[in-house]
Amino acid sequence: MTARTAAPRAAPAPAGPPAGAAPWAGGAGATTSPRRAALVAGSGYAGIFVLAVLANFVVLEDVRGAGDPAAVARAVADREVLVRAAAAAFLLVAVLDVVVAWALDVLLAPVHRDLSRLAAWLRLVHAVLMGAGASVLVVAAGPAGGGTTTPAQRAQQVGLLLEVFDVLWLAGLLAFGVHLVLLAVLLGLSRRAPVLLGAVLAVAGGAYATDTLARYLLPAYEDVAAVLLVVVAVPSVLGELALTVWLLVRGGRRVAGSAPAPARAPRGTGGPARPRPSGRPDHP
C-alpha cells in the first residue's frame, strides 16, 4: 500500500485592489492618476497667476514707480502691510511651484522619465529662489536698524534689498525658462497636446532665458529692456494661460479608442502578455 502524497497548496494571492480597479483606487501602492495630476497642475498654475499678478503688478510695480530711491523707501514704509502681503504671495507661489512640479512629473514621466525629472528639478530651483526672494522682500518691508537709521540710509538699504530680490527673481526665471523648454519637448513627445501649445511654451522659455542672460551680461540692458519685455510677456502669458486651460480641460484624459495595457498573465498559465494597442502613451 503506497502512501498518498498531498498536493502542495498554492500560495495565496497578494492583497491588492479588486480586479479591474485602477491602480490609483487606493491601498498601500496607490498612485495618482494622470487626470488628477493634470487637474492639480492646472489648479496650481491658476493660483500662481492670481498671486503673481497681485504681488508683482499691483504692489511692487506701484512701489517701484514712486520715483527716486528716497521716494521708493517712503512708499515701502507707507505700504508696509501690502509689501508684506506681496512677500507672502510670492512665498505661496513658491509652494505652488513645488506642487505643480510634482503634478507635471506624475503626468509626463510616462513620456520620458529622465526629461520629466529634470524639468521638475528646474522648477524646484525656481521655487527655492522665489522663496528666498520673498524673504528678502519681508526684510525690505520692515524697519531696519531698530528705527535709528536716517532716511538716506533707509533709502540705500531698501534699494539694495530690492536689487537682491531682482537678482534672485532673474536667476529663478532662467531655471524656469529651461523648464518650459523641456515641458514643450515632453508635450511634443507625448503627441497628446496641441503642437502650437508646445511651440509657444518653447518660445516663452527661450525668451525667459534670453532676458535673464541679457540682464546679467549687457551693461546697457536698459536700451533693449522695452523690446525684451514684449518678447517675454507675449509668449509667456499666452503659453502659460493656454497650458493652464489644457491641463484643466484635456490633460491626462485617455484618448478615445485607446485602452490600458493588459495585465501580464500569471505564471504557469503559458499566456504571454499581449502588446499594447498603440506605441504611444495613453496620457497626457
Rank of each mutant, 00 (worst) to 15 (best):
P219I: 01
V99T: 12
L218F: 12
V203P: 00
R254E: 07
G279H: 14
R64H: 11
V255T: 13
A86Y: 07
L173F: 12
A220T: 13
T212Y: 10
L168E: 09
G239R: 10
G42C: 08
A202I: 00
T150Q: 09
D97V: 00
V203D: 02
P151L: 06
W102Y: 10
V203K: 04
L189K: 14
G159M: 07
V98Y: 08
S190L: 02
A70H: 15
A21V: 02
L60H: 09
R274S: 14
L170F: 06
A6R: 13
G172L: 08
Q156W: 05
A77V: 01
G16R: 12
G279V: 11
V95A: 15
V178R: 01
L186F: 02
A75P: 10
V231W: 09
A273M: 05
L189H: 14
Q156H: 13
L217A: 15
P235R: 11
G205P: 05
A70D: 13
L228P: 11
S135N: 06
G42W: 12
A109P: 04
G20R: 10
L196A: 15
A103P: 09
L173M: 14
V58G: 02
V185D: 12
G279A: 15
A28G: 10
P151Y: 10
V100R: 09
L218R: 14
T2M: 07
A204M: 00
V231N: 07
A37M: 05
V245S: 11
V224P: 06
V72H: 09
G67D: 05
A73T: 05
P219R: 07
A225D: 15
V59H: 09
E80W: 02
L60T: 04
G146H: 11
D105W: 07
A94I: 01
H179N: 15
L196G: 10
G239V: 02
Y208Q: 08
P262M: 02
E61T: 04
A155F: 13
A242M: 08
E163Q: 14
A256L: 05
T32S: 10
P272N: 03
V63M: 07
A71R: 15
V76Y: 05
A30D: 05
L174D: 11
F176D: 09
P23S: 11
T31E: 13
A132C: 10
A209K: 08
A46I: 00
A75L: 05
P69A: 14
L115D: 07
A259W: 06
L218P: 04
F176I: 00
V158L: 07
V232F: 12
F57I: 03
P281E: 14
R9F: 01
L107C: 09
A10P: 05
V59W: 05
P281C: 01
G131E: 09
P219M: 03
T148M: 08
V83G: 04
A225N: 14
G177R: 06
R4F: 06
A73W: 11
A13N: 02
R35E: 14
L182A: 03
